[in-house]
């Protein structure tokens, strides 16, 4: 049938009602973060640090990263584990969706009217039955802006 060369599997997730996708090759795991330790003096997008099977993982709150209102307190959130430059991160999302397979050829450039906040972290979009799926560019997601300086 169709060769795998022409399609990529994406892990999908919802953040603030918007659908996002991450190439599965870049995803380590999906987990429920527990015992988050906050990092004083860090930018608010850093939700904290956690211990995942002996590894220290830096949690990034994707809602804050995208400039959305923070999630309601007490609501359980999922995290997608990724790696960048040898360090582990967990992207806190609202809900994780299915793994879907999308043709490489279908990846389009950011539409002109794409929200600036989404465009900043987007590596492209897919149009799926009236839904827009934004592919996340991990490096840009982790490029969190001005840090709060220490005293």
């Amino acid at each position: 049938m169709s060769t795998t060369d022409h399609a990529i599997e994406y892990v999908t997730a919802t953040i603030g009602g918007q659908l996002f996708g991450l190439p599965i090759s870049g995803v380590q795991d999906v987990f429920m973060p527990e015992r988050l330790t906050r990092v004083p003096l860090a930018a608010p997008e850093f939700a904290g640090m956690l211990n995942l099977r002996g590894r220290i993982v830096t949690a990034v709150d994707m809602r804050l990263r995208l400039g959305l209102a923070p999630a309601e307190a007490g609501k359980a959130r999922m995290a997608i584990g990724i790696e960048s430059k040898g360090e582990s991160y967990g992207l806190l999302i609202d809900a994780v969706g299915e793994v879907i397979r999308l043709p490489v050829a279908g990846l389009e450039n950011n539409p002109v009217n794409l929200d600036a906040r989404l465009a900043r972290v987007s590596a492209g979009v897919y149009r799926l039955d009236g839904n827009l799926l934004v592919v996340l560019d991990v490096d840009r997601v982790l490029d969190i802006g001005a840090h709060a300086e220490a005293a």
């Binding site: 330790t37 990092v39 004083p40 003096l41 860090a42 850093f46 640090m49 211990n51 002996g54 220290i56 830096t58 430059k85 360090e87 991160y89 982790l142 969190i144 840090h147 300086e149 220490a150 005293a151």
Partner: peptide, 16 residues
């Protein structure tokens, strides 16, 4: 510390 948090001068690392 995570490379993106390394500039926080008050911390020298983290541990479990």
């Amino acid at each position: 510390m995570c490379s993106r948090l390394r500039n926080i001068a008050l911390f020298g690392g983290n541990t479990i």
